[in-house]
């Protein structure tokens, strides 16, 4: 049990927790600014980004794909703003136009290009690949103290940890302006804060988390974690500090319970194979939101 758990289940659980927290943190600000669906839009446009990166470089490797995804997210944000301003289209509809068209473009490019020899498809972008992130060098719990074994950890783990660190660092560094401009944009502007820049910064931070996470865990978890843990946390408290704390707890709980249910749940009821961990983590985060919506102390306005 010890060996199997450390090698096969621990890395995906930790990666899932890191990804969930990295997405939930900026999600708190998006929620309060009524921009939750930006996360949805970003995770759709990641697909054309990685396809274009693959077409240019011809290989499936992480760095170009991350650049492609980031570039696509940026293009999407610029296009949404342009359509909103130039065409005087309401933001929701502008977003709907852009992300569906870009996603359709991504699917078309994927069908047109020869990707039969490589692992690149729509399903991968949607569900990610959490179950395959295993740690072959581990022999048991003792491996956690063994530097040689630790270097064999899946690279996604380090990447997600780094992404979480960056997002958390930026939030900590710009805490006051972030908080001010989220709660009272007018006041923030009147004391001289660049509110437009701060708004863009939040979107960029969300894009960073989404791009880092999609490859490991897929778009479903990204969208669910942007919205569900912060929404559930919002129903628990009125203070932003505790809301962020709760959202981190809910994000971790979703990742752990979701992964365990997906990996071991079917065995408990006598079925043979496991089910999608990404889907189960999203489902658990939804259940947590449902419970808070029914019983949390601050669920009403």
């Amino acid at each position: 049990m010890g060996y199997e758990f450390v090698a096969l289940s621990l890395p995906p659980i930790v990666i899932g927790m890191l990804a969930a927290m990295a997405c939930a943190l900026p999600g708190n600000f998006l929620l309060l600014r009524r921009q939750s669906l930006i996360g949805d839009a970003i995770s759709h446009v990641v697909l054309p980004g990685i396809v274009v990166a693959f077409l240019i470089t011809g290989v499936i490797s992480t760095i170009p794909m991350m650049f492609g995804a980031a570039a696509a997210a940026l293009v999407a944000v610029v296009l949404i703003e342009a359509i909103r301003r130039l065409g005087k289209v309401e933001p929701g509809a502008a977003m709907g136009v852009v992300f569906t068209a870009m996603f359709a473009g991504g699917v078309l490019l994927l069908e047109q290009s020869d990707t039969s020899g490589v692992h690149l498809d729509v399903e991968h972008a949607l569900y990610g690949n959490l179950e395959s992130l295993i740690w072959l060098d581990a022999v048991g719990w003792s491996s956690l103290a063994d530097p040689a074994a630790l270097s064999g950890l899946p690279p996604e783990l380090l990447r997600m940890a780094l992404a979480l660190l960056v997002v958390a660092g930026l939030t900590w560094l710009f805490w006051r302006p972030l908080k001010l401009s989220t709660f009272d944009e007018g006041f923030a502007r009147s004391v001289g804060l660049p509110t437009g820049l701060i708004g863009l910064g939040i979107v960029v931070m969300a894009a960073l988390a989404a791009v880092a996470a999609f490859d490991a865990v897929g778009s479903i978890i990204v969208i669910a974690m942007f919205i569900c843990p912060p929404a559930a946390a919002r129903l628990m408290t009125n203070r932003l500090e505790s809301q962020i704390g709760w959202s981190m707890v809910f994000a971790c709980l979703s990742a752990i319970i979701g992964y365990v249910l997906a990996g071991y749940g079917p065995m408990w009821i006598g079925a043979a194979a496991s089910v999608s961990a990404a889907g189960m983590i999203a489902t658990v985060s939804g259940l947590i939101l449902a419970i808070t919506a029914l019983f949390a102390p601050h669920r009403r306005a």
Binding site: R34, Q35, I220, I223, I227, C228, A278, G286, R299, R300
Partner: peptide
């Protein structure tokens, strides 16, 4: 969610779409 809690509609939309879709993927597997 929009009527009974203080969450805005866009959060309700995002929560429902990701959770239902995630559960659908579980069933697909």
């Amino acid at each position: 969610i929009t009527r009974k809690t203080r969450l805005p509609e866009d959060a309700a939309i995002g929560a429902v779409l990701s959770v239902f879709f995630g559960f659908g993927i579980v069933l697909l597997t």
